[in-house]
Each structure stands twice: as structure tokens, then as C-alpha cells.
């Protein structure tokens, strides 16, 4: 038995990856992801430790505090699998070494996962899907769901394999330049898209009329001079020319919004976003800000401002 090397097959590792999708299932205030972590490793531990005492020690070893980004746990799982495999085959891997790898990697990796997945990939895919969905296009949700899960499962599997093959050597790479670069690149692209999304999707429309000036004759459609019936409608549409031709009314009305848009489109949305950022920095709960905005929306509508 002792001379026969136990190794984890690809199927075992895939099984671990599948289990790791439930990492946060028993998330708790005491040791956070510990239950899910042990659950993820169980397919591998079962193979490595047929002896009940060894199994018990392994389970207890992996029920200690653990918390990181749920997807970035995969490279850590990979390294842990490599270490546990060595240990099961008799290599002198101390429990402390396994703990050290887990703790050493979970902090920096969580710092990568949040900006990349929650603040760049998900908002971009979400906005892409939502912009299609708002007009009732079912491709929006489908696109979001399929793309997200392809990226996610690909990432889980690839990084877990990377961790498994590199073993503990990966800890050095992980704290090195590449990861930092990925995080920074994601933040840049994320901020770019956020700027665009604020312009496109935060809608504020100030309705008060600033000025109402008469248009000279010939600048507007003279409805009384049009022929009757469909011919008249056709004539009016030709004259209107998608808003590029004659005006529909005798007056040119300029709302407050038109004036603001001349400065830069979306200025009000930008200012609102900055206000929210400032309030959040002042530790105002986002929930109160959201409720406040609804109240303002209703009141301003009543007063004829929005």
C-alpha cells in the first residue's frame, strides 16, 4: 500500500471544481467559507485518505477560517490538492504549510476577484444584456447567462489546474506583477464602461420650459394648408423629415434639459453620481440613498421639475 502512489485523476479534480461552486453555501459569521471549503475538497480527500483517522484529521484541518472571492478560491484549491496529494503519499507536508498557503493566497486573490468579476465583467455583461432586455429582447438575458457562465467555469477549471500543476510555487507568481496588472487593467476598462453607462442609463429629464420663441413663417409646418387625409399626413412627414426639416409647432420650446445637454449630454446624471459617491463616502447607507432618490423623484414630479 505504502509504495503505491495515490494520485488524483482529472475526473477527481473536475469533481472538486464542481463542488467548489457551492463554496459559499454555508457562509457564516464565524469562519465564513470554511464549510464550503471542506465540502469542495471532500471528493479528493475521500480518494487520498481511506483511513478514517486520516480522513478525520484532514476534515478538521480544512474546517478552519477561510474567505476569499468565490472564483479565486480555485487556484488555492489547486495548490491545496497538490499539497494534500504529496502528504497522502508520505511527503512531510506539515499542516501549517497547508494553512500558510491558504492564508497567504486568500487575501491577495480576493483583492483581484472583486474588481475583475464584480466590478468589471458583471457590470459590462449585465449592461449589455439589460440594454437589450429593456426593449423586450430575450437575447439579452440569454447572452448574459451563457457568456457569464462560460467565462466563470472556464476560469474555475483553468486556474484550479494551474494551481494543481504549479503546486506551492504559484504563491510567488500570484503576488507578482501579472496579477496586479490584470487588476489594474480591469479597473481601467471598468471605469471607462462606467463612464459610458452613466451617460447612457441614468435618466434625468428636467421638464421646466426655459424659453418659448416664435419661429418665423416657413420654419414650421402650416397644418391648415396641407391637403386632406393620407396625402396631408404624407406631406407633413416629408416636411418634418425626421426632425431635420420643419418644426411641428409655431414655437421653439427649450427646456432646462436642452440647455444642460448643450454643455455635455448626461451632465445631470454625472452630478447625481458624484453626489451618491460623496454620500457613500460619508457612510450614508446605500439603501437610504436609494429611498431618498425615490422620494425626490416623486416630489420633483409633483412640483413639475422632473
Amino acid at each position: 500500500m505504502a509504495d503505491k502512489k495515490i494520485s488524483l485523476t482529472k475526473a477527481d479534480r473536475f469533481n472538486v471544481m464542481w463542488h467548489s461552486q457551492f463554496l459559499q453555501g454555508s457562509w457564516n459569521y464565524e469562519r465564513m467559507q470554511n464549510g464550503g471549503w471542506a465540502y469542495s475538497l471532500i471528493p479528493a480527500l475521500r480518494k487520498l485518505y481511506s483511513n478514517k483517522d486520516d480522513m478525520s484529521a484532514a476534515l478538521q484541518r480544512h474546517l478552519v477560517f477561510f474567505n476569499t472571492h468565490p472564483y479565486l478560491a480555485s487556484p488555492i484549491i489547486g495548490v491545496t490538492l497538490a499539497l494534500e496529494e504529496d502528504k497522502a503519499n508520505g511527503a512531510p507536508v506539515e499542516d501549517e504549510a497547508i494553512q500558510g498557503v491558504k492564508v497567504g493566497m486568500m487575501g491577495p486573490l480576493a483583492g483581484v476577484g472583486d474588481p475583475v468579476f464584480w466590478y468589471t465583467v458583471r457590470p459590462i455583461l449585465g449592461a449589455l444584456g439589460a440594454s437589450m432586455a429593456i426593449s423586450g429582447n430575450v437575447m439579452g438575458p440569454i447572452l448574459f447567462f451563457v457568456l457569464w457562465n462560460l467565462i466563470r467555469i472556464g476560469f474555475l477549471w483553468y486556474t484550479q489546474e494551474l494551481g494543481y500543476k504549479a503546486g506551492s510555487a504559484i504563491t510567488k507568481d500570484m503576488s507578482g506583477g501579472l496579477l496586479q496588472k490584470v487588476t489594474r487593467g480591469a479597473s481601467m476598462m471598468g471605469m471607462f464602461v462606467l463612464g459610458a453607462l452613466i451617460e447612457r442609463w441614468v435618466s434625468i429629464n428636467f421638464v421646466p420650459v426655459v424659453s418659448k420663441t416664435p419661429i418665423q413663417k416657413g420654419g414650421y409646418i402650416e397644418w391648415s394648408k396641407l391637403p386632406d387625409g393620407a396625402a396631408g399626413i404624407k406631406q407633413a412627414l416629408i416636411q418634418y423629415n425626421n426632425g431635420n426639416g420643419l418644426s411641428l409647432t409655431k414655437y421653439k420650446t427649450t427646456t432646462l434639459q436642452n440647455n444642460l445637454d448643450q454643455l455635455i449630454p448626461g451632465l445631470a446624471a454625472l452630478l447625481l453620481t458624484f453626489l451618491c459617491m460623496w454620500l457613500l463616502k460619508k457612510k450614508v447607507s446605500p439603501i437610504w440613498i436609494i429611498i431618498g432618490i425615490f422620494v425626490v423623484g416623486v416630489l420633483f414630479h409633483l412640483w413639475g421639475i422632473l
Binding site: 462606467l194 441614468v202 435618466s203 453620481t273 451618491c276 457613500l280 436609494i290 432618490i293 423623484g297
Partner: peptide, 12 residues
């Protein structure tokens, strides 16, 4: 109208 503006909180 509020729903159109509240989007800003998430971005912020």
C-alpha cells in the same frame, strides 16, 4: 422617474 435616477447609486 426615481427608478431612472436610482441607477446612479449602484454606479457610485
Amino acid at each position: 422617474i426615481g427608478g431612472g435616477m436610482v441607477v446612479a447609486v449602484g454606479y457610485a
